[in-house]
Computed example of a mutant assay.
Amino acid sequence: MKKLGLIGYPLGHSFSKKYYLEKFTKEGITNVNYDLYSMEDIREFEKLFNNKDFYGVNVTIPHKINVLSYLNELSAEANAIQAVNCIQIKHQADGPFLKGFNTDVYGFTESLRPLLENHHKKALILGNGGAAKAVEYALNTLNIEYKFVSRTKTVQNLTYGELTAEILNEYLIIINCSPVGTFPNIEEAPQLPYHFIGERHLLYDLVYNPAETMFLKKGKINGAKIKNGLEMLELQAEKNWEIWNKI
């Protein structure tokens, strides 16, 4: 049986495993299994990709960057971001060939695109971790200007305390790439001046549990268009499947 899986540490509830096992059942796919492979040390990954049953894996924290040293090739977006969440494994006569992708870019881009209106020209990215890098790449492809917002001031970003009515009137897309508001801390929200947010704003939260975070609720109350990260995950999951099954 062919094998797929998710590597990371620690691994708790997995969207990916649930999604793929349901997909296999629904579509009558019987020759593939998807499982979780918790590994604290990335060197354990060698056992997986040397197993000829494995032809693809997803990658999550903390290995999205340190897995790069095992890869033979990177897709354009993975190379730009220097982080992967999907690896295609091809077993060849001289050993396995591993190519890394970042399908978060595809998932985010295609879930955001239908929501964009003519006035959505500039975005604020909340957070500066790996997810924010994928969002940054996507915004560049969509020709949307952006600024980062974080708690610590640098040359490249704003702080939450610097967000004025003038800035929020100019940056009408706000994307939460931080874990703030994720279950079980559902009463938390990024420290924005929400009273400056209105009907022209689009608030996007990469968090999907809960389905409507406090960040989204506060925006919705003020008339903003809102979107959570569930469709992004579903789209990237299908893109992973397409990549793994390319001959």
Rank of each mutant, 00 (worst) to 15 (best):
M1A: 09
K3W: 06
K3C: 04
K3S: 05
K3H: 05
L4D: 04
G5S: 08
G5A: 06
L6M: 04
L6N: 02
L6G: 04
I7W: 00
G8P: 12
G8W: 11
G8L: 14
Y9S: 05
Y9I: 03
P10G: 13
P10L: 13
P10I: 11
P10R: 11
L11E: 04
G12R: 07
G12V: 13
G12Y: 08
H13T: 07
S14Q: 13
S14F: 12
S14N: 14
S14K: 13
F15Q: 05
F15K: 05
S16M: 15
S16L: 14
K17R: 10
K18L: 03
Y19R: 07
Y19S: 08
Y20P: 10
Y20K: 08
L21K: 12
E22V: 07
E22I: 07
F24T: 06
T25A: 15
T25Y: 14
T25S: 14
T25E: 15
T25V: 15
K26D: 14
K26T: 15
E27T: 05
E27G: 09
G28V: 10
G28S: 12
G28L: 10
G28D: 12
I29L: 14
I29R: 10
I29H: 10
T30M: 11
T30P: 06
T30E: 15
N33A: 12
N33W: 06
Y34K: 04
Y34G: 02
Y34S: 01
D35G: 08
L36M: 06
Y37R: 00
S38T: 00
M39S: 04
M39G: 03
E40F: 08
D41I: 06
I42K: 11
I42M: 13
I42V: 12
R43P: 00
E44A: 14
E44K: 10
F45G: 02
F45Y: 03
F45L: 06
E46C: 03
E46W: 02
E46R: 05
